[in-house]
Write a protein that binds this DNA or RNA. Structure first.
Lengths: 195, 195
DNA sequence: CCTACCGATCGGTAGG
DNA sequence: CCTACCGATCGGTAGG
């Protein structure tokens, strides 16, 4: 890769990171390109040398995370984990996303409505698909008597939403360690599923 | 109450209801007063005969719901419910809020960041207070051996966030009944706490 | 409740 | 990467 390209790519990367922070703090519509430019350290007009549009930035943030989630469950197919262990793995994965890639994950979860028509449709399809695959882990686990009878749909929504609660820890900071939070939440959510 | 006042109050009510719908759909910053006026059926300027400002509407929506939540746990003090039963009652209360007062509850949960400085500070204080009182239900329940040992903070965040998952049911609509959702979620969240 | 309009700010472009 | 600037739209007010 040529030096100029590398430099450009890393500047774009900086813009995307700063944008994730600001979109999380204030929301996508309430973040102006001028605010963003200031936090990057350039003029608003100069942003457009690195990105196409405001909404392109949102797309990048969201689909990077969403693709990572999708890849994670794909990899589970090649393992010999039980159905319950797969659900546990997904739960831990989301908890870690929330704890270590807080800004981007938060933006995906809270700002996806502001995607433009086509990416929005793609996102919704991808998420529905994702939820359905998790539901099948649950229902197969119930069939195998690993998991208590429960509506798989409710179990999946509960797990995926519960993780959002860690947002508040991220705000208040430091009273508990990330490990404590993860272990307690896993014990609650996975323990509650065990047959 | 004079007839003119009653009429005015109900018009304001209509504005607040329509605003709740639109804030939920598009978010507070992305909803313009012109959009809102159109959905009410008047000109944008005329809105200001009934309300003071855009942010006053947001405040009304949020504090109505938030006060109702707060009142609900206050009433629990006068009951002889066990600690676990109190947590169950709170869980059901939030599930019902999500199912029956969807727009306003959703706005409270997702748009509170857009409150102005003073109401924002009030909201954060009230919510922290609320969370702490729920934590004490949990820790007393653990002390009384009604509830499994768990970090009360994690249990409370998990329950309150889990309810947010029902947002997606509200979107997709009708595959399951509200009762099924409530009973399944309560079985999962409360069942998972039982000692 | 409307018409007319305010200053501010938005996302984005031209041209260098 | 900047200066200069575009048309559009924002929340809100004046005056009737």
């Amino acid at each position: 890769m040529a030096k100029a390209q590398r430099k450009k790519a890393s500047k774009k990367e900086l813009i995307v990171q700063k944008a994730a922070c600001m979109f999380r703090e204030k929301g996508f519509p309430a973040t102006s390109m001028r605010d963003l430019a200031e936090s990057v350290g350039i003029e608003a007009a100069s942003l457009y040398n690195h990105i196409q549009s405001k909404s392109e930035i949102l797309q990048e943030i969201i689909f990077r995370i969403s693709d990572d989630c999708y890849n994670h469950i794909n990899e589970l197919d090649n393992t010999s984990l039980s159905h319950l262990q797969k659900i546990e793995s997904v739960t831990r994965f989301h908890i870690q996303m929330m704890l270590t890639r807080f800004e981007e994950y938060h933006v995906m979860i809270n700002e996806w409505i502001h995607l433009e028509a086509q990416p929005l449709a793609d996102f919704i399809t991808q998420r529905r698909n994702y939820v359905q695959r998790l539901e099948s882990f649950i229902s197969e686990g119930i069939g195998a008597k690993e998991i208590k009878p429960i509506l798989p749909y409710v179990a999946v929504l509960t797990i995926l939403s519960a993780v959002r609660g860690l947002e508040f820890w991220h705000r208040s900071q430091k009273t508990y360690t990330p490990e404590e939070l993860e272990e307690n939440m896993v014990a609650y959510l996975i323990g509650g599923l065990k047959a």
